[in-house]
Simulated assay, not measured.
Amino acid sequence: MDFTLSEEQGLIIDTARKVGAAFGPDYWREKDATKSYPSECWQAICDAGLAGANLPEEHGGGGLGMVETALIIEELCAAGAGATLGQIFMLNPIFGGVAISKYGSERMKREWLPKLCSGEMSFCMALTEPGAGTNSLELETTARKDGNGWRVNGQKIWITGVPQAHKMLVVARTTPVKDAPKKTHGISLFMIDVEREGLTHTSIDKLGTNTLPSSQVFFDDVRVDGDELIGTEDEGWTQLLDVLNTERIVTTAALVGAGRLAIRLAVDFAKERTVFRKTPIGAYQAIQFPLAQGWAELEAARLLNLKAASLFDNGLAFGSESNAAKLIASQAASRVAEQAMQTMGGMGYSKEMHVERLWRDARLFRFAPISEEMILNYIATANLGLPRSY
């Protein structure tokens, strides 16, 4: 097993580091304060050829894999963005890119993927519902047949990046549960315009990740054409899992980068801050040990995440690794951000020092895009062979 990065991967990391450095913590603090979408940063990422690293070369991508995508996200997030930048990768190379490149029509691939890679098009995904939450099989949004297409009705919640998106990956039930041979049958995926009659959305005020809006989305008899189906009608569940499990890889990479940034800010502070006998506080083990523990946990999550990404790139099962990596990373990044605040004392509570933003943003990923409890449920049943309780 070789952990050495190739020359190409090293160059990619260097490129991501340089792009990230151009949009450091001060940029993200301003975007957070004004709740502004980081369009300049995303365009720079696209211009550097990083947005479509995992997408096919013939459609404007880099022809690489999820390993390279994870490495890119780590560096960008560690440079100043924190965990929230990973969400833009979820929206575009994952919700848009993975869904289209694996299951979209040739027209979708030809027309949309190059625009995704260049930054001309943005995407979002409408999955979560108020009544279903994590249990996506209980979704109530329906798509009923209407000529050569469908009519979609229902409601979604906590949908990220809707106002900026051109296309929305919609998950809906095309066959009622009562008529399906099993619960996983009867779900379909559609890629539709966000600006469409009957589709409306309202914003949700929230604690963190303020650079990306979250919305409730309402579908009132929204017309979907036949050629907007992604994959196979009624068999969208297994296709959706490919999207969701790669989402875990992106999330973990962002959390690892955010944790690295929090540790760096805490270490820089601890080297300069002196108390009592003019000793830097970084010399005290009470400061050192929690940060060192966080580094170890983040490194473990990183390696497990890269394993998951490598398995995906080689067409092997990767769900256990991607979920476990996300579990460790979300806990570690939250603890490290809080420890960085503690290291700085009162100054850590100020917006000037950046870590309060990292703490607010990282907290989301303890329960999104999947909660710790559901990951543990998955590991208990899939890896330990224990009976299901739900």
Score class of each variant (00 low, 15 high):
291 L>R: 04
381 T>F: 06
2 D>W: 03
131 G>W: 15
253 A>L: 04
299 E>Y: 07
138 E>F: 04
54 N>Y: 07
300 A>I: 09
197 E>H: 12
282 G>C: 10
275 V>L: 04
81 A>Q: 01
177 V>K: 15
214 S>A: 12
320 S>M: 10
373 E>H: 13
136 S>E: 14
11 L>M: 08
293 Q>W: 03
157 I>T: 15
34 T>D: 11
46 C>W: 08
212 L>Q: 06
237 W>T: 11
165 A>S: 15
129 E>N: 03
186 G>P: 01
129 E>W: 04
252 T>F: 00
170 V>N: 09
377 N>K: 14
114 P>I: 03
9 Q>D: 04
342 Q>I: 13
293 Q>F: 09
43 Q>E: 08
151 R>G: 02
370 I>L: 14
80 G>A: 06
387 P>Q: 09
351 K>A: 10
380 A>D: 15
120 E>V: 04
51 A>P: 00
3 F>L: 15
233 E>Q: 15
96 G>R: 00
126 A>G: 13
214 S>N: 04
294 G>S: 09
97 G>R: 10
353 M>H: 11
231 G>P: 14
308 A>H: 00
349 Y>N: 05
296 A>W: 06
56 P>K: 04
269 F>M: 10
54 N>Q: 10
384 L>I: 03
171 V>Y: 06
90 M>V: 07
127 L>A: 14
364 L>V: 11
21 A>P: 06
285 Q>T: 08
59 H>E: 06
318 F>L: 02
330 S>L: 05
239 Q>P: 09
93 P>I: 00
18 K>W: 02
55 L>H: 02
352 E>Q: 14
218 F>I: 11
22 A>N: 10
223 R>T: 12
54 N>W: 04
96 G>Y: 03
27 Y>D: 10
93 P>S: 05
256 V>Q: 02
218 F>D: 03
234 D>W: 09
130 P>F: 11
34 T>H: 11
323 N>E: 10
211 T>I: 08
250 V>A: 12
168 M>G: 06
174 T>N: 09
21 A>N: 15
119 G>V: 14
117 C>I: 06
212 L>S: 05
318 F>C: 07
353 M>E: 15
1 M>L: 11
143 A>W: 13
217 V>Y: 07
18 K>G: 10
215 S>I: 12
